[in-house]
Nucleic acid binder design. Structure first.
Length: 826
RNA sequence: GCGGGAGUGGUGAAAUGGCAGACACGCAGGUCUUAGGAACCUGUGUCUUCGGACGUGCGGGUUCAAGUCCCGCCUCCCGCACCA
């Protein structure tokens, strides 16, 4: 061997060259093609949340795809037919805003970015099945959005109503409840206001109970945090509806309460100031003017102001009285903004003694407070603190002496018997508002006819294509830009052929993502959104990977769609994602990266400096996948160092491929099989960082074996190097492929298969046991791993150190846990 | 306010109730070198009278044994936020 080649052997390997070398090879082999007709491997569906095509991939994408790839590539190595698809969530505001700025069709920007991201994903060695790609802005995709909309419409699950909706003045469109974050628009952070509009909704509230109860199936498989967030978001509460007669009016008013046991403690009555009921009660009375002034005032207050829970209570006495059905008392009726119009019935009985908000209002308005549950706490009249806990009922006639729960049961039974009320439940969840007054989305397939009213577009006429943007003013102005596409808008009514107009709103892009995972297995199907056969083969998704930002939006909507499709009979499962992994964010110096903050790390720069494998490795090794990664804390150059160390091993191996490992050095063989076993376990429990650590240990052990142990020719060295290449292929595919070739194998290492672990090699020859006295370590001894409790106890008690420590006294108790530990209680 | 999660070396982090700090980063020293931003080796929780002692946010408890389980605090992060 010449000095020159020796130098090359020991130089750090050229990652740029290796990357260029393998990409075309993989293009040819297509190691990750799924669902070939003759494929007999068991299936797995591993899914990464699809990206929004806004510019090139960034560090966050790199983190997510690196993690998804570990899982996907692992199952391929384990012999599964893995479908790991990708597509683009391509409709939406960023494209439209970019189009306005550049004065061109959003299609151009969108498809350009998709091409850029696709090329970057290939270079990043994402193990995607490229045959299944689609974009939600393709007519071939969104026609099925429209088709699904019509199926929901047929079943009364898509409907229009007038309502006060969330309005973003920045985006000039309405927003779903889920898209309002702390009173601000999720997209642009503008303060959201209310607007009365007629809009399309999906009736997700019909599914509230199932969305809640089916979460039982996800327990332990989804992050507890996401389940908690969904539970809170749905917010089921149990209580009762109670009818209150109104003095001087023929119709009673129904209220909702979770505490019907406190009915005798009601001292006033409140209706939501912005409800129709309040307007009706005020109409024609002497307080009408005062009420209207109050209403104007609270309408002007933004949601932000409303968020301050400690702001003083306000309201107007409406001059009317409600009659308490249990004792006939006259309760003054107030209008206030602390009662919400769209929750429950928009009216409440106020029990200030046992509800803090009612108490705050009572104190502000000098209204009486009556205790009806003795909780053992101090009088709310004096402390100003309502007592909401359990206790014994007082001042409540037939309920006196009962505990809270008993009283609730008894009063509900009584109310039902008397026809004055009934048990009821309520949800925080509201119906999903799906109309948007913007251009770049799926057109709603409804025609409005002067004669026939609302008429659905016929299924055979789908897709209802979005008109070209040319000639349309896309600038946000509060009504859909589609309204100006007169040729498109004016149509013949599908029913009577008379003059009619298309609905000009587009669908929320969350509609697109609520079912896209069902489309991948059937992505080339032109006759239906997905075929039953494909669904039965691949779904549900075995492993979903994505950010926690979608904990309630996308994940709740997808669960809803799945349940609807289950009801329609298009699929036979009711939860779409069996397991969910939420990866953390990539931060820089403790905060999210942003241009304005000046802490943006460009993925392309990092890849150029350290190579794809080192960046992927750094992401995976930095810590548990759910935790955020602070890029300031990771060392990509350390990853480069490790990868070249591993790579050098493959050049040192001097035995031939196919050599029988059985004759190899036993201690290195044991290290190899332990690493394979531990790494496997770590990957399956999402501790990818630990899996990498096990590979590092094996690299270290192999280095030592070559330099100062059994030597490079020992078969165990080859076995170790091959195992390292295979394990590394999950994280560092280029390095692993290069190693595999240098070890004399044909590509691709991705399909090499996870080596069978030999259980007999997992047993160590000797293990170190500790001997404790009173829990403190006094001595360490080498023992056989198969030693019994009695044997190890005897060894411990006979050990000179222990004999000396005990100084002749008899131990009170000896706990032996062979082969690890003996604890002597002296 | 309500709900959830987390606090371990200089740093990122490991640890089925059983040896706290695996694996790395960083740092220090060394070997080889014309050179080192290469490679390799050694050391690296704190205190220490060099025997050891102490050590996982704080205070209690359960246990032969607690980073891990239980109770009460403190701090930080996330979600919801007048939902009756």
């Amino acid at each position: 061997m010449s000095t020159e080649s020796n130098d090359r052997e020991h130089a750090a390997y050229d990652f740029a060259h290796v990357q260029e070398k393998w990409l075309p090879v993989w293009d040819r082999i297509e190691p990750f093609k799924s669902g070939r007709a003759d494929d007999m491997r068991p299936k797995k569906y591993v899914l990464d949340m699809f990206p929004y095509p806004s510019g090139d991939l960034h560090m966050g994408h790199a983190e997510a795809y690196a993690l998804g790839d570990v899982i996907s590539r692992y199952w391929v190595q384990k012999g599964f037919n893995v479908m790991h698809p990708i597509g683009w969530d391509a409709f939406g505001l960023p494209a439209e805003n970019a189009a306005i700025k550049r004065n061109e069709d959003p299609r151009i920007w969108t498809y350009e970015n998709i091409a850029t991201q696709k090329a970057s994903m290939r270079r990043f060695a994402c193990s995607f099945d490229w045959d299944r790609v689609f974009n939600t802005c393709d007519p071939e995709y969104y026609r099925w959005n429209q088709w699904l909309f019509l199926q929901l419409y047929k079943r009364g699950l898509a409907y229009r109503k007038d309502s006060a909706v969330n309005w973003c003045p920045g985006c000039q469109t309405v927003l779903a409840n889920e898209q309002v974050v702390a009173g601000l628009c999720e997209r642009c952070d503008t303060a959201v206001t209310k607007k009365k509009l007629n809009q399309w909704y999906f009736k997700i509230t019909d599914y509230a109970d199932r969305l809640l109860d089916d979460m039982e199936q996800l327990e332990g498989k989804w992050p507890e945090k996401v389940l908690m967030m969904q539970r809170n978001w749905i917010g089921r509460s149990m209580g009762a509806n109670v009818k209150f007669a109104i003095d001087g009016l023929p119709e009673p008013v129904t209220i909702y309460t979770t505490r019907p046991d406190t009915l005798y403690g009601a001292t006033f009555f409140v209706v939501a100031a912005d409800s129709e009921l309040a307007a009706k009660l005020a109409a024609g009375t002497e307080v009408e003017k005062e009420f209207n002034e109050y209403l104007e005032k609270i309408k002007a207050a933004s949601d932000i102001d409303r968020l301050a829970t400690d702001r003083p209570k306000t309201g107007v006495f409406l001059g009317r009285y409600a009659i308490n059905p249990v004792n006939g008392e006259k309760l003054p009726i107030w209008a206030s903004d602390y009662v919400l119009a769209d929750y429950g019935t928009g009216a409440i009985m106020a029990v200030p003694a046992h509800d803090q908000r009612d108490l705050d209002f009572a104190r502000a308005m000098k209204l009486p407070v009556r205790v009806v549950v003795d909780t053992g706490e101090e009088d709310p009249n004096e402390t100003g603190i309502a007592t909401g806990g359990d206790g014994v009922l007082v001042n409540s006639q037939g309920l006196n002496g009962l505990k809270k729960e008993e009283a609730i049961q008894k009063i509900i039974a009584q109310l039902e018997k008397d026809g004055l009320g009934k048990a009821s439940r309520n949800y925080r969840l509201r119906d999903w508002l799906v109309s948007r007054q913007r251009y770049w989305g799926t057109p709603i397939p409804i025609v409005h006819c002067e004669k026939c009213g609302e008429v659905p577009v016929e299924e055979k006429d789908l897709p209802l294509q979005l008109p070209l943007a040319e000639g349309l003013d896309l600038k946000p102005k509060g009504t859909s830009p589609l309204g100006a596409a007169t040729d498109w808008v004016n149509v013949a009514c599908p029913k009577c052929a008379g003059p009619a107009k298309r609905d000009t709103d587009t669908m929320d892009t969350f509609v697109d993502s609520s079912w896209y995972f069902l489309r991948y297995p059937s992505s080339t199907n032109h006759d239906e959104p997905f075929s039953r056969k494909d669904i039965d083969t691949w779904l549900p998704v075995d492993q979903y990977v994505g950010g926690v930002t979608h904990a309630i939006l996308h994940l709740l909507y997808s669960r809803f769609f799945t349940k609807v499709l289950n009801d329609i009979g298009m699929l036979d499962f009711n939860e779409p994602f069996t397991r969910l992994l939420n990866q953390g964010m990539v931060l820089m110096d403790g905060s999210a990266m942003s241009k304005s903050r000046g802490n943006l790390v460009r993925l392309s720069d990092e890849l150029a400096h350290h190579g794809v494998d080192a960046i992927r490795l750094s992401m995976v090794f930095s810590g548990p996948p759910e935790d955020d990664v602070d890029w300031a804390d990771v060392s990509p150059s350390g990853s480069v160092k490790f990868l070249s160390r591993a790579w050098r091993l493959s050049g040192d191996v001097s035995s031939a491929p196919g050599v029988d490992f059985k004759s190899g050095d036993l201690s290195l063989r044991k290290a190899t099989h332990k690493a394979l076993n531990d790494a496997s376990f770590a990957v399956e429990s999402f501790r990818f960082n630990v899996a990498v650590a096990r590979v590092m240990e094996l690299v270290n052990a192999t280095r030592k074996a070559i330099d100062s142990g059994c030597g490079a020719a020992d078969p165990a060295v080859r076995e170790a190097a091959e195992a390292i290449a295979i394990m590394l292929s999950l994280v560092a595919p280029f390095t692993a492929e290069e190693m595999w070739e240098r070890l004399g194998h044909a590509p691709s290492v991705a399909l090499a298969g996870w080596p069978e672990v030999d259980a007999t090699l997992l047993v160590a020859d000797a293990v170190e046991a500790v001997i404790q006295i009173n829990g403190k370590i006094k001595e360490r001894i080498e023992v056989s791993p198969t030693i019994t409790d009695a044997e190890i106890e005897a060894l411990a008690l006979a050990h000179p150190t222990i004999v000396a420590e005990l100084a002749g006294s008899t131990p009170k108790k000896v706990i032996a846990r062979a082969p690890k530990l003996v604890n002597i209680v002296a």
